[in-house]
Simulated scan of single mutants.
Amino acid sequence: MSFIEIQNEFMAHIRQPTKNAAPKGIEDRRLAIYRDLFFNNIEGFIASGFPVLKSLYSEPQWHTLVRQFFSEYNCQSPYFLDIAGEFINFLANDYTLKSYDPAFMLELAHYEWIELDVSIAQQCDTEQPLSQAQITTSPLYLSSTARNLSYQFAVHTISKQCQPTQPSAEANYFVVYRDNADDVQFLATNAMTALLLSIIDAADGLDFSAICQQVLAHAPQFNAEQIAQGALATLTAMAQHGVIVTKNQPVELY
C-alpha cells in the first residue's frame, strides 16, 4: 500500500471511525489521541464562531451536529479561518433539519459567521472615504468590508430564552461593517436603506442620480424630490460609517 493510500485510510478512520477500519499496525490508543484531537479542534473553532447557536443545543445534540459536519462534509479550503464559512455551506447545502433544530438555524448561523467574514475581509486599496459633498458627484461603491443583509427572523434578538418559531412580519435588515478602529459593527437598517445599498452593490460605480432613478422605479409611491432627499440623508450616514466609499479612478494614458 502506498503512503497516499495509508494517509487516506488514516483520515477516513479519523473522520468516521465507526464506518472505516483503522490502518493496520497502529495501536488504538494512539489513534484515539488523533480522533479526539482532530474533532476537538474543529468543535472548538465552530463553538467559538457560533456561540449563540451552540447555546440552543444540548451537548449531545451539538456534538452530533459537529460530528456530521466533520465526518461528511468535504471542505473546499484547507485554511483554518475558512472552517466557519465551510460550516455555513454545510448547513445551507448538505444538512437536513432535525426535529430539535430551530427553523432559524441557518439565518442565525450566518448572522454569527458574518462577524468573522467582515473582520478578515481585505479592504480594496483603491477605496476612498466620502465627504457629504462627494456623495452627489462621485461614483459610489459598497465598501469591501461591509455587508448588506436581510433575514426573515430577528436574528439579533435570539438567545436561549428567546427563540421565535415564526419569521417576523417584516424582513430584518442589517449592515455589518468594519469601522476605523478595525472593529466589527452591526447596524440595524430598514427596507429603503437596504434597497439603496443593494443597488450600489449590484452596479459598482453608479452616481447619485442613477441610484435615485432606480430607487424611484422600485418605490413609485414617492416622488423624485422625496427620493433624493431621503437617499442623500441615508448615504451621508452610510459614508460616515465607511459603509459606502468611492474609488481612485485609473489615469488614462494617451
Rank of each mutant, 00 (worst) to 15 (best):
I199K: 04
N248W: 06
F50E: 09
L81Q: 15
V251M: 12
F80P: 04
P78W: 10
I199L: 15
T145K: 12
F3N: 10
D179E: 11
F90L: 01
N40I: 11
V118W: 02
Q123G: 00
V243E: 06
F90G: 00
S159N: 10
N74R: 07
L108Y: 05
H63V: 11
K19C: 06
Y141N: 04
Q16L: 12
D101C: 11
E9N: 14
Y151M: 04
I199C: 05
A47M: 07
T236L: 08
A154S: 13
E252Y: 10
Q76I: 06
A171N: 06
P167I: 00
T246C: 07
A233K: 11
Y95A: 05
G44D: 11
M238K: 05
D101H: 03
A146F: 08
P129D: 09
T236I: 05
N148Q: 04
Q122T: 00
H218M: 11
F80Q: 13
A146C: 06
I14N: 08
I211M: 12
Y73A: 06
V118R: 04
F87M: 12
C212K: 05
T96N: 15
T18D: 15
S150H: 07
Y79E: 13
V251D: 12
G49Y: 01
N74M: 10
C75Y: 07
I114V: 09
A210C: 11
S71H: 02
Y57T: 13
N180T: 13
F153A: 01
A210W: 00
P167Q: 09
R30Y: 14
R30K: 15
I6R: 12
S143A: 15
F10M: 14
L216A: 02
T64S: 06
I158Y: 01
T165E: 08
R29N: 11
Y111K: 02
A21L: 15
T189V: 13
D204V: 09
L37V: 15
A224H: 12
Q123I: 02
F3H: 08
Q229F: 05
T137S: 05
E115D: 05
F186P: 03
P139C: 03
K24P: 08
A12S: 15
F38N: 14
F80D: 10
F186A: 06
C162E: 11
V175F: 03
P78G: 04
Q213E: 12
Y95T: 04
Q76E: 14
N190T: 09
A133D: 14
I227P: 03
T145M: 10
Q163N: 02
S143H: 09
P129R: 11
F186H: 13
S99A: 03
S48L: 12
H110R: 01
Q123F: 03
P78R: 01
A202Y: 03
S144G: 10
T96K: 15
N223S: 08
